[in-house]
Every structure is written in structure tokens, then in C-alpha cells.
Computed example of a mutant assay.
Amino acid sequence: MEPLGATVIAAPLDLGPVAPRFVRLIRPDLFLLVETDFWPNWLHCLRRSGVATLLVNGRVSAQSHARYQRFALFFRPMFRTFSLLAMQTAADADKMIALGVDTERVFTLGNLKFATAPAATGRRDGSNRPTKVAWGFAPAAPLWICGSTHPGEEAMLLQVYGRLRGDLPDLQLLVAPRRIERRGEIHTTARAHGLNCRTRTGDGVQQGPVLILDTIGELAGCYAMAEVVFIGGSLVAAGGHNPLEPAAAGVPVLFGPHMEDFAEIAAALTACGGGRQVDSVDALTAALRGILADAALRRTMAAAAAACVRANSGVVEHHIEAVARLLAGSTAHR
């Protein structure tokens, strides 16, 4: 479905006369490029045509930076075609400047992925939040939520849960698989670990310490009732998932080593103390044991996670200001 007032068309091949013809036909006032999908011929053509260009959500990994430096004769002129480069972090901006881009064209405007987070509350007492009792959990017992888990991951998480129950026999667990049709597979895995579990859509027992969330759209609303959250797709090589929803709810966040798709957000949460990255089942067990045993630590991590989201809440407005500035300049020169 196309947004109101928008026309979606395929981008041209970045070859020979194709891009110049495309630019002549479209006659754009502004060109926005997201992150790192660079098209050199297209960018040079836009520059020659006097079209303002803006890189949004720009990032430069260590690997990319080494490649840009190695082939600087190719990349430096391409980066210089941009009217403005809006980078996610100051470190990203410094890397662009080191590559020879003029400092007045490089800005640190933050990560637009923070705009996907709900408003950070950092509170756990809102009347509109689901209660543990309503979800069939014991109200006073701690709850660990594992969100958007992937194949091969649940077995590790259930192993950790079994270990933790030796010290915390009342610990409760909510597992929300990325694909809800995997509920039966996870149920079988739980039984293999000696655990009885229930499903959200099941007609049987609706109370108990282990729940498989096999519905769509309810996970985000559950995070606020957890003592700690683990982000799925990160103990296995699946790129991870967005940790901002539990962070905005004011809950400590844990994730594995594979957060490639959300590396900057994971790094921000780790740096502020609202999240922790673990690299193994043993490390996850130790981190959970420490967090669940220390209420003061949980409060500190929860507050830091929510503050991290709040600190980046103006990222969209900053980008809109940059767009408005470029459009004003583009209109003035036409």
C-alpha cells in the first residue's frame, strides 16, 4: 500500500545514461539515501544536475571504514557529492570527516530506529499495562520474557531457565517465538526439558509459570510486566531484533552476540547500562542470576534503558529540520 500522496517506482539501474535520463524525467528537488546503499553514478548525476542530496541514518562500520580508506580515490569523490551527511553517532561523523568530507556537511543527528520505540515511561505501575495475573502468572514471582526467538534458540533459553529455577524456584517465563506457527515445536522442546507449558491460544490450562505467546501484536504490551527481557535472534546468527520496546518500558535488556541488525542501538544500551550483551548460555545464566537477585540493579538498569530511549526521542525532528533546510536552499536556486 502506498502512503497518501506518494508514488512508488523502481529505482533506475546505476549504469551509463540510465541515471541521467531518470533524473531529467523525475526532476527531484531532494534525494534521500538511507544508511549505506550507495549508488555512485546516480549520486554524481544528481550533483551535476544541482539536486540536493542527504544521507540519512548514516553509519560506518570498522570494516566499511577500512574499505573506504583502501579505495579512497573511488569513495572520497562519491561522499563529497552529498549536500549533507546525517550520521548516527559522533564516531560515524568522525570517520566521514577523516575520509575527506567537509566538516560543515557532516552532522550527528542520531539513529532513526529510535523513532520506532514507544514513548519511554520507565514506570511499571500504569493501569493500562497488563498484569501478571491477567496473563496467568503469579503476581509476586519474577517474570523473564524472551521476545522474538528463533529455531535453536529456545532450547538454550529453556536450559538457562532450568538452571535458574534451582536458585529461583518461582521464576516464570514467557517465550514469544518470531514465528507463531512454531508453538508445537517449542512445546515439544519444553517437555524434553521437563517443563509443562501453556499457550496463549490454548483451550487448556491458562495459569502456570511457562507461557508460549503464540499471538501477533501482544508482545510489546507484555514487556512492562517483566523483571528482565532477552532479545531473540541474538544467541543464533539471525541479526537480532529491536530492543527499544522493552527499553522504553523501563526493563533491563539482555541480548546475545548476534545483534548485527541493531548494532548501534545495542551498543547505546550497553554503554548507558540499560542493557548487557552475553556471548554464551553460561554468560546469560550468570547475567540473569545477578539481575534477578538484585532489585537495586534492576531499577538502575531499567532507568538507564528508559533514559536512553528518551535521549534519542528527537531524532525525527532533527532530520526534518535538515530536510527543510535543504529544500529551502534547493527552491532558492531554482
Results as ranks from 00 to 15, higher is better:
Cys222Pro: 00
Ala98Ser: 13
Thr81Cys: 15
Tyr68Thr: 02
Ala66Ile: 09
Ile180Thr: 15
Ala138Val: 06
Arg124Ser: 14
Leu13Phe: 14
Lys132Ser: 07
Thr131Pro: 07
Arg24Gln: 11
Gly232Ser: 02
Asp29Trp: 02
Phe114Lys: 08
Leu85Asn: 08
Asp167Lys: 10
Asp294Gly: 08
Ala62Asp: 15
Phe74Asp: 10
Arg182Gly: 07
Ile320Val: 15
His318Tyr: 08
Leu327His: 12
Arg163Ala: 12
Trp39Asp: 03
Gly122Lys: 01
Val23Gln: 06
Phe74Glu: 10
Leu171Gly: 08
Asp282Val: 13
Phe262Asn: 03
Cys45Trp: 00
Leu195Cys: 06
Gly110Pro: 04
Glu218Ser: 01
Gly136Gln: 00
Tyr223Lys: 09
Val160Ser: 04
Leu219Arg: 00
Ala267Val: 08
Leu219Gly: 01
Ala304Gly: 11
Leu219Pro: 03
Ala141Ser: 12
Ala93Cys: 07
Glu260Asn: 04
Arg123Ile: 08
Asp279Ile: 07
Arg183Tyr: 12
Leu46Met: 02
Ile231Gly: 05
Met78Leu: 14
Leu46Tyr: 01
Gly110Phe: 04
Gly329Ala: 06
Leu164Lys: 00
Thr300Arg: 15
Phe75Asp: 04
Ser64Arg: 06
Thr189Ser: 13
Ala328Gln: 15
Pro142Asp: 11
Ser234Pro: 08
Gln206Glu: 01
Arg27Glu: 13
Thr300Phe: 00
Arg24Met: 01
Phe71Val: 12
Ala307Trp: 10
Met96Ala: 13
Pro77Phe: 06
Leu46Pro: 03
Arg124Asn: 07
Glu181Ala: 14
Phe79Leu: 13
Val228Thr: 04
Ala90Cys: 03
Pro28Tyr: 03
Val236Lys: 06
Ala249Asp: 10
Ala176Asn: 01
Arg59Asp: 04
Ile97Tyr: 06
Ala11Phe: 12
Met96Phe: 14
Asn111Ile: 06
Tyr161Ala: 07
Arg105Leu: 06
Gln63Tyr: 01
Ala155Asp: 13
Gly50Thr: 04
Leu292Met: 03
Arg165Ser: 04
Thr285His: 13
Ala296Asp: 15
Leu254Phe: 12
Asn41Leu: 07
Val60Asp: 05
Glu181Met: 08
Gly50Ala: 04
Gln88Leu: 12
Ile145Asp: 10
Val281Asn: 01
